[in-house]
Write a protein that binds this DNA or RNA. Structure first.
Lengths: 138, 138
DNA sequence: GTGATTGCAAAGGTTTTGCAGTAAC
DNA sequence: GTTACTGCAAAACCTTTGCAATCAC
């Protein structure tokens, strides 16, 4: 895999999807920000630096597409603003109840085989902690 | 604790908060539905049966208050619609990616002491699984 | 050329807010 | 009598959608 390539873009060629400049800009923006679990708005701002004419609707459509393709993942939110992150299963989060920032901490796989026996299909699992981050504690 | 009482309402007397008929209706509605991790809208509909004049804004304000008081808990969502549940720490969820319903499965405490050393204050933690529930798999 | 994709603007859904009136203590 | 609380309607916010124009293949 070439240096700098984190996502498997071959999936575009395999499908009938097009890797347009807008989608590239959204992907690039996402990769730049992926450490901080960016919101759609943050990705939009960053994407406009690569493709100044891109619209917010295209950003949402692209992100949905990437989620659907399994390239990235949507993180559930407490305040109604979705965040996105790289596809890592399992992964563990700390969500700050005040600022909403998401931090990642060391992996600690937790899988429960029982619920699959009950007919649930588990795609991914993660452990989430809620509380206050160092910046918000003072 | 009297039968049927699940939440600690003494917290109302301790504070200068008032336990109005509207708030009682919201609490009652929440308790009726707590098994299914209700949305604010569902709680609103149920609360109107107990207090027909209650407004949706009051429902939101009450739920926020209960969360703040630690009586109930808000569940992060993927689709922008919050859900509420009883305060249980830790608790484990299965979130259906299709219908958004939340199922609870057996407790399996996962705590990471390391992140507290780094300055994070952990209020609660839970393990979340994403996938498809039995009803949505066909 | 054809069909997927885009940008815009409008609509959608959920939640919050301002404010005058009301009710709990 | 105070002060917290309420209902209403409007606003705020995030996200999705319809559609004509455009672009990638």
């Amino acid at each position: 895999m070439p240096a700098g390539t984190v996502l498997d873009l071959g999936k575009f060629q395999e499908s009938e999807r097009r890797l347009t400049p807008q989608r590239q800009a959204v992907l690039k923006a996402f990769l730049e920000l992926s450490q901080e679990h960016p919101t759609a708005e943050a990705i939009y701002q960053a994407a406009r630096r690569h493709c100044p004419t891109v619209g917010i609707a295209t950003v949402y459509r692209s992100l949905d597409l990437f989620v659907q393709m399994g390239l990235i993942q949507k993180v559930p939110s407490l305040n109604g603003t979705a965040r996105y992150e790289t596809q890592k299963v399992p992964h563990n989060h700390f969500v700050c109840l005040k600022c909403g920032r998401i931090y990642e901490f060391d992996k600690r796989p937790v899988v429960d085989k029982n619920i699959e026996k009950e007919g649930f299909e588990v795609i991914s699992s993660s452990t989430v902690c809620f509380g206050y981050c160092p910046a918000c504690r003072q």
